[in-house]
Amino acid sequence: MHAVETLNLSKKYGKTDALRGLNFEVEEGEIMVILGPNGSGKTTLLMILCTILKPTSGIAKVVGIDVAKEGTKVREVMGIAFQEARGFWRHKPSSILRFHASMFDIDPTKRQDLIDQTMKDLELWESRDKLFMHLSGGQAKRLETAKVLVQRPKLAIFDEPTSQVDLRGKRKIWDKIKELRNQGSTIIVATNEVREAEYLADRVTILHQGQRVVCDTIPHLKDAIAGGDVVEVDFEDPVSARLSEELKSLGGSVALSPQGNQMRAMVSRAEDWVPKMTSASYNQGAKISSIKITEPSLDDVFMQFTGTTLEDKP
């Protein structure tokens, strides 16, 4: 049995298709990262899994329970940290966490210790006497994560867990999410941040325009890119049209910067391609100032499979 499974899942808002026949599985105990730009259907999928939204058609199951038919049972095993923090405005963080913990039957004898520890771990301890409405965006976001960490659900969902959080805070949240997985939870993280996906993911699902484009481990996704190496070349001056054509004819996928003096090429073997490129550049009189060879990023993977970048509108 999958921890999460959807079959032909669709959701329409009026005439807009947010999800279009989505098939998606998450295995028990893994961290599945859903990667996609804004509007790709990530949040809609999560809202359906946590039973806030009803699907227009198709099936979604959490630990084998149909979310549309047995919502209350699903909610007993699932916890979500929303993209926009949601809390009682006039309550303090610890009382928000106490309410949440009691709704999910967290052992009363351990409840307060767990809440205190989680607040310390997520650097909320100093803000424990502030009302929710006086927390900064980052603090409210951390409190949102803290709810799920205190709850320790079978399925934990995080929707862009580190947006508005500073760099140090991001790493702390990521480590706590991994810790939660190690304690036995299955995790879904929706994000459009490549670094977050690379740090957390056991597997990545790329969503684009409400459909699953691909799902695999990060190494497999990177291997699946035509080529496999990324070569970034800086020229001292803009490259001539002739040289540009010649470089493109060497194979791989070559893109020039708008200024014309930086080039990014995805090639199958950098060790074969770079000598040809340097030789062609020398013959055309173009001076190279630097060459950098890297493996493709998830951005490249996304570009390869969708033809667009994570920053682009869907």
Binding site: C50, T51, I52, G71, E76, F82, R86, F88, M103
Partner: peptide
């Protein structure tokens, strides 16, 4: 309007 209702809707209650 503040979305707290959506939070309530994720709690194990009908």
């Amino acid at each position: 309007r503040e979305g707290v209702v959506q939070y309530y809707m994720t709690l194990p209650i009908r």
